[in-house]
Design a protein around this nucleic acid. Sequence first.
DNA 1: GCCGCCACTGAACATCTGTACAGTGATGAC
DNA 2: GTCATCACTGTACAGATGTTCAGTGGCGGC
Lengths: 200, 200
Amino acid sequence: MCSVTRTERGQDAIVGAAMRLFARDGIAATSLREVAKEAGVSPALVVHHFGGKEGLVAAVDEAAVGEFGAAYADDSATGPELLQRRAEQTAAVMRSHPEACAYLGRALIEGTPGSSAVFRLMIEGGRHEIDDLAEKGALREDADWTWATLQHFFLIWAPLSFRALLEREVLDGQLLAPDNLERWVAANVDLLRDGLYRDG
Amino acid sequence: MCSVTRTERGQDAIVGAAMRLFARDGIAATSLREVAKEAGVSPALVVHHFGGKEGLVAAVDEAAVGEFGAAYADDSATGPELLQRRAEQTAAVMRSHPEACAYLGRALIEGTPGSSAVFRLMIEGGRHEIDDLAEKGALREDADWTWATLQHFFLIWAPLSFRALLEREVLDGQLLAPDNLERWVAANVDLLRDGLYRDG
DNA sequence: GCCGCCACTGAACATCTGTACAGTGATGAC
DNA sequence: GTCATCACTGTACAGATGTTCAGTGGCGGC
């Protein structure tokens, strides 16, 4: 009776559906049954493949971290234009993997193990970047670099975590639509480079 | 049999317990029974006073927004040192109302009605501030002020929303402990005023 | 052909969820 | 005194939740 090709269903469909719903409604607020329904599958199949909700979250985590990490790992850029390059790279990741990024924005708040890994990846990356730039003398020397690294992180991830709020209250259309994404990235580069206030 | 003074129990205890648990674990992930237990009260009393979970969330929202709004409303400062003054004011609010702030950090993510009000308050405040400074010529003129306002917001609220993550992975001790709070505020002023990178 | 494997299902389970309801006992008005 | 009020409780209920289990049907190996 099942004329649908086997391949498209099953694990991939479940992980995809879960990623979408977790991102939209939160992990705690999304039931296995909703995920199964969204994936067009019985709840029991979710348990069969992933052992339970905890296992499903781990699988979604792994998928999202994998997509994000792979796209983000290509860090051949160096030099003073690093900031701009990094920003464009981040934007590219969000353009090509919007679901994974949206999910991670939620996961960071709810504290899934995979999201902690992404956090560490970002923080370490930020620190290397800073060390790199500091060697080249491109940085101010009096800043608090622990908090500066966190600020980088917030400027990138907070919009994803606050996504629903922004789209409801401020933005025209989707956060990850080309226009908004471009303005967002440009504003980040701008702020990090020059601050917002006139000297003196 | 009940020798405890009546006053301390009841509504206040429930709202306080709910605010604490909602902030720590999220609203969706916290049950009425947990709130009632934390407050030392029967679950039915929560329903009696607030009509249900939705009503409880509304009450906690109102309490948090009230505390925060009252402490934040005193905005007599103007002039070029406004940024520093505002930052100190925000820090003072967080010092004096840590639970309300921690709760709002979560509520902003989960999208409660009250948190949206705080968001609008902050965004409007930010915009007035910017208009004020722009008139005085204290601002750069080429920035994207919609996104700049959002950046202000993120730098203040993201740490609260990511609080558990930060305390687990990066910070020594509590985010709102005096040392961390001071570094955080100082880093914000620093970034907004000068950026992180050397000119040229 | 047969057989084992495995994705997949429906029905059932215990538990937790929010909520309704009928009370109880202390307090204050009269 | 009596009575109404109200904070507060224990119990019960319907529905949702995560999970279990005994199946079923199609596929590849032999």
